[in-house]
Amino acid sequence: MTAHAPVSPGIPPSPRAAHRPGRLRGSIRRRPLTWFFALAYGLSWVAWTPYILSRNGIGVWDFTFPGGQGASQLLGVLPGAYLGPITSALLVTGVTEGRAGLRTWRARMTRFGVGWRWYLVVLLAVPGALALASAVLAARAPDVPSAAILAAYLPALLAQLVTTGLAEEPGWREFAMPRMQSRYGTLTATFTVGVLWGVWHLPLFLTEWGGGPDVAWIEPVQFVATTIAFSVVMTWVFNKSGESMPLVMLLHCGVNNYVSMAWSDMYPSLPDRYASHAFLLASAVAALVLLVATRGRLAGPPRRKAP
């Protein structure tokens, strides 16, 4: 049993102490988006600090995360990714909407029934668009991936879904987009989330994840430009599919999986930075086509009118 200091029965607790939890809860309920973004950034950036300070980053801390580049990134990056967007979304949803909000969150996260054609299009369109963009930049046709790469492609994609996809998209798309679209409109929501999603990654450019610590300034700038353009595509898929998070996660992870698994095998003579150039080119073209085709609506809901 834990001992407690005696409390005089004649002296009530201070109003400040009594109402502090209520004030915090009230602040979260009044500003759920502000709290979500602040928590997503704060939790991730604090958790990434050891990785950034280690020899995998700027080298202030005399420690190297084990397992080589791939495993060290999982150990250094993934914990912060899980602590950021998805944890923040669950916390703020639980405080502001309770069990009903968490049920809505779960319904979007398990909305698999969007038709097999959607999955086929996303599975084929992502590597197809990236391969085409890479071919334009390289001015040549790609090499055929090896049998080992083709065999490992789908298993690696599943691994991406439960790491990158599950860590990020339940926050940026599932939590932020519906609230921002209804309040600010689809385009404002899309560009805002695109910027915040990209900037959230910026500390990682001080590490091997982003080619750091001595990365050129153009690399993070290009990355944020890419997240803005790609967010247009993500928003359209999110809205058009009835807010199906499995499909959105598949779209996001399809890019990561192609770049990490197939790109270097198809374009072995190109520098690694060309993969980022290809992603930006493919995203920008797709975003422009969707903005023109939908007249900027991106299949979004009408903006909520102010009372």
Rank of each mutant, 00 (worst) to 15 (best):
F238R: 02
R23W: 13
Y82S: 00
F223G: 09
G113C: 03
R30K: 14
P9S: 07
G84V: 02
L150K: 13
Y267G: 00
F238N: 06
V60R: 12
G194D: 05
R303P: 09
R29L: 01
G198F: 01
A141I: 04
P155Q: 14
N239I: 05
R111H: 15
M261I: 13
K240I: 09
F36R: 05
S146W: 06
T96I: 00
A40Y: 02
Y51L: 05
V193L: 01
V121M: 10
T96F: 05
V122D: 02
L196S: 03
V292Y: 10
P142F: 04
M1P: 14
L124R: 12
S283H: 03
L91C: 07
P66Y: 08
N56M: 10
W197Q: 10
L290H: 11
L102E: 08
R20M: 13
P9N: 07
T93H: 03
W200V: 03
R106Y: 15
A139T: 15
Y258G: 04
E243W: 11
G115N: 04
K305Y: 08
I149M: 07
P12T: 07
F205E: 02
V121L: 12
S88W: 09
A262E: 06
L196M: 08
W236T: 08
L290A: 11
G76M: 04
A225C: 13
L187N: 08
G80N: 00
F230I: 11
V255T: 13
L150V: 15
A152Q: 14
L280H: 11
L281E: 12
N257K: 04
T227A: 03
M1D: 14
L204Y: 10
L33G: 02
Y41S: 01
D62N: 14
L206T: 03
R25G: 08
R23Y: 10
E169D: 12
P170Q: 05
V255G: 07
V136E: 02
V232K: 01
W217Y: 07
L204Q: 06
P12W: 01
R303E: 12
